Simulated assay, not measured.
Amino acid sequence: MNRYGLVAGLMVAAALGPAAAVADELAVKKTSGCGCCIGWIRHMEENGFTVRAQDVPMGAFMQEKLAAGLRVGQTSCHTSRIGGYVVEGHVPAREVRRLLVERPDALGLAVPDMPIGSPGMPGKAEAYKVLLLKRGGDTKVFASYPTSDRDAD
């Protein structure tokens, strides 16, 4: 590669660097003192995401969930936004990455409730599903996680 090609390549990389970092920034809303939220945030940071967490009062927190399009049975203890999507609850980092790569026409992902063994939730893993939240309220299984007694397929 000649000197001009190298300079052009470096300029493109420099220009894309901040955009790529912003795409990986999670804006997390949670209530104060939630230990499992902190555990999930740590999981996401350990997997390369930049996290901006904000503690909000319960009323504002519930408004955030409604504004995101979440319905009864789809919620958990923290609500995040990234790349135009909502990420509700203890969704593993690899599923958030997959969401950002595949870019489905959906609201985002959710792990309802707080399953033991999901990222941020200590204990022997129980089976849980990551749901793709479709527009209009329907859901589809995006990924399944077995209990710690079974091997993943």
Rank of each mutant, 00 (worst) to 15 (best):
V51Q: 09
G48P: 02
L133A: 02
P146C: 13
P122G: 03
G35R: 04
V86P: 00
C77G: 08
K134H: 08
G89N: 03
Y85W: 07
R52K: 15
G108S: 12
P57C: 10
D149V: 02
I41N: 10
S118A: 12
F49G: 07
G136C: 08
K140V: 14
L131P: 00
L109P: 05
K65H: 05
K124Q: 15
V72R: 14
P122R: 09
A27T: 14
R150S: 14
A127W: 05
S76H: 01
L16V: 00
C77K: 06
A19P: 12
Y85F: 05
K124M: 13
L99Y: 03
A127K: 13
L107Q: 03
P122W: 06
K140I: 15
A19G: 14
K134D: 07
T75R: 09
P18F: 06
A19D: 11
G9P: 08
S144N: 10
L66R: 14
V12K: 14
V87P: 06
C77F: 02
L26Y: 09
L10A: 15
G84P: 01
A19H: 15
V56T: 14
E95S: 12
V28M: 09
G120I: 01
M44S: 09
V111T: 02
Y85N: 02
G137K: 15
G123Y: 10
G83P: 04
E25S: 12
G89A: 12
S32G: 12
H43P: 01
R135Q: 11
P119F: 00
K129L: 10
M114N: 01
L66A: 15
A27M: 03
G39I: 09
K65G: 04
K124I: 04
E102I: 10
E126L: 06
P18A: 07
H90Y: 01
E45N: 07
R3P: 04
R135V: 02
V130Q: 10
R71G: 02
V51I: 06
L131F: 11
S80P: 09
T75H: 08
V72S: 13
K134P: 00
A15Q: 08
V12A: 08
K140C: 15
T147I: 03
L70P: 00
M121S: 05
T31K: 12
W40T: 01
T31R: 09
V28Y: 04
P18S: 02
Q74D: 02
E46G: 11
C34M: 05
L99N: 13
G59F: 11
C34W: 05
A125Q: 13
S80I: 01
A13W: 04
G39F: 06
A60I: 04
E64V: 00
M58E: 13
G108P: 00
G17H: 15
A110T: 04
C77W: 04
A21H: 12
G73S: 03
R150Y: 13
P104W: 05
G17R: 05
M44R: 08
A53W: 01
L107G: 07
P18T: 03
T75L: 06
V91W: 02
